[in-house]
Nucleic acid binder design. Structure first.
Lengths: 211, 211, 211, 211
DNA sequence: AATGAATGAGAGTTCATTCAT
DNA sequence: GATGAATGAACTCTCATTCAT
């Protein structure tokens, strides 16, 4: 049940990149945290940038998979689900999400493109949901593109401050954010039947396997 | 009217720290961008960290000054004003705000404390405004602390994507965000009389002098 | 039989610190003299100061070990032995002794304390020997503390000028200094039976292994 | 009565070179201690090395002048005088003598030659005195050259440890060293009539004017 | 007489990475 | 599979010195 060397490296990378940033983390820091020599790191990874990209890719892939796992015909339910998923992911995987959200700019252009396109794929789900809602008349918003960005930025922020030891449970957090989102889109705030508990399970499943 | 050396250094620092991050920016990069030798940099600054802290301090001070310049009895107007100010600042000073928002973690504890306390002072204005609105019954929100964080995160995001060459004018942007904010706080979205134009002037004035 | 890298570094440090002083010796000088890159130096040492401290510690430890290896009941013989040992060490290991004698002041307080305490341990042997001699009535001296300092300073000087190609053999040098010391302490100059040859062997043994 | 700028610079140089060594003292340290800007330093001195050489030259010149001022037909008296003078100088001008004794090796060859030749001139007085004593039969020593070196090294050491707040007065110190010297040269220790008080006056006179 | 501004060179140290073992 | 050894390049920062004002 002990972690494999590869997993230890990824865990170390996530923690350190999240805490000190990519440029603030040295190869020796990684090696020490992963309990191997710095030379041995290079058996398991390409360059330091490759390690970062791998971590990002895997995290985004999981988020995307989770989001795709969401069903629901009603756009309000789908949006509430996306928000809950996103918020819960950021609340329970703060290190991973910090890396994904904050370190894109250090990637070289080629690598960055691949990561960003994954992110775009994910954001497309939000875009579609919002469009569907507007088309169906359940959302009112004059600037859906901007609102989508505002929603995502708002939800991303959770990674920076949420603490399970704080006053809010994960359920309360997710529910509150879902309400905020619906309000932002001009819908009655409680008009969604998405079971937040369901989002927790999805997040939990997707992140069960050690990265 | 040409920039002084000190100003060139600050401009260079803001641009480079914003683009490549603090750790991603070398002292030689700064020197080159400021068109002096790297040794000369040290005539005008202490350490690289001092330079970062100076920039952050000045930016936050200006934001705080602008926010304090806002008047308005009605909490809805005050909130709309804060949002407009924040969003316009992030839209028109993207480099400065990126540095302030993203590089706090590289500061050493002592320096960080001073910067964070400035930020706290600023956020207190938001907290008070929201409280006032709830007390006055014009806002409805069960989690005002969380909502304040959500609001700020949402507005911070603007720095990452807004482009004056995009479809939205600054006025439209600010107005839209003010509406979103009011919606989030359970108020009728158009129920504010804050003149966005006024916020533009404040921002413009505060940032007129070269940093 | 070739020197290891670690030994080459120590030899280089001793030679250069002795010739040009600690501050006068650059890390690149050390690297060049040790025939490795300056980055590689840091595989084998901590900081430049650590390297200096290591060298000093080892040299003092050897001197101390040699001095403790001296026997002799008669204080005159013991003093003659200490003088011979000290002088021969300074004559045959001029670089090492110069470093130990001249570079203490560059050490940071913490490190300095450790080095000085080693030196104090060594000087205690001299203090005890002089006290014994006075108590036994074979030495006459009104200021034994000062005289001990004078003796040590006198013997330290040898490192600066002795040359094996000069007119004095090591035996003559050691014998002469032993006589001077006994004269200083008011004893008949030839009244000691310490075999200088014995001191040579001790010194030789202690310094046989490459530092 | 305040010091001139030139004097402040010299005092600063002496103090700092003595405390931290030539290489350990920066031009900015000197400027700060002399209370002028580092650029202004260069109005009063040539290079940093020139400053060191000037200080050394002046110190040695004063020592030489003092030594030449000594009279006395009897070699014992003359030797006692030289020792007293040397020891008192080192006890009362510790910073100056430390610089002169410890920093010769940082001088470039050309400059060093001039300094060393001054030193040689001074040491010649010792050599002659010892020779005279041997020729006159009042000294017995088989290795007068070595003994002269031993004497000087012994006396130089005083600069490192003498404190006016210690148990020895300057008179006691000088008298003790004179005795040690005479013992080393095989003369009866008290067989000298040189008034140590006289040496104090000479030293005092020579160093009255601020360097 | 005095100095702020400026700099090329170099300081000690760490960087990510490679490779022989 | 693992690592000690090695390095060129780069790091932040300080050096002694010059010069226009």
């Amino acid at each position: 049940m002990a972690l494999t060397t590869e997993q230890r490296i990824r865990r170390a990378a996530i923690k350190l990149f999240a805490d000190k940033g990519f440029h603030g983390t040295g190869i020796r820091d990684l090696a020490q945290a992963a309990k191997i020599s710095s030379a041995s790191l290079y058996h398991y990874m390409g360059t330091k940038e490759d390690l970062l990209a791998d971590v990002m890719r895997e995290c985004l892939a999981r988020l995307l998979r989770a989001a795709r796992g969401l069903t629901g015909e009603d756009p309000r339910d789908r949006l509430a689900g996306l928000v809950a998923l996103h918020v819960l992911t950021h609340a329970t995987q703060p290190a991973e999400t910090r890396v994904v959200d904050h370190e894109v700019h250090v990637l070289s252009p080629t690598v960055r493109r691949r990561i960003v396109s994954l992110r775009d794929e994910y954001e497309l789900l939000w875009t579609e949901t919002i469009s569907d809602g507007i088309r169906a008349g359940v959302f009112q918003d004059a600037e859906p593109v901007v609102t989508r960005l505002a929603l995502l930025d708002m939800c991303n922020g959770v990674t920076r401050w949420y603490s399970p030891r704080g006053p809010l449970s994960l359920e309360q957090l997710a529910t509150h954010y879902a309400r905020l989102a619906l309000r932002m889109l001009g819908g009655p705030e409680n008009d969604f039947s998405f079971p937040v508990q369901r989002a927790r399970e999805v997040v939990s499943t997707v992140w069960k396997r050690t990265l």
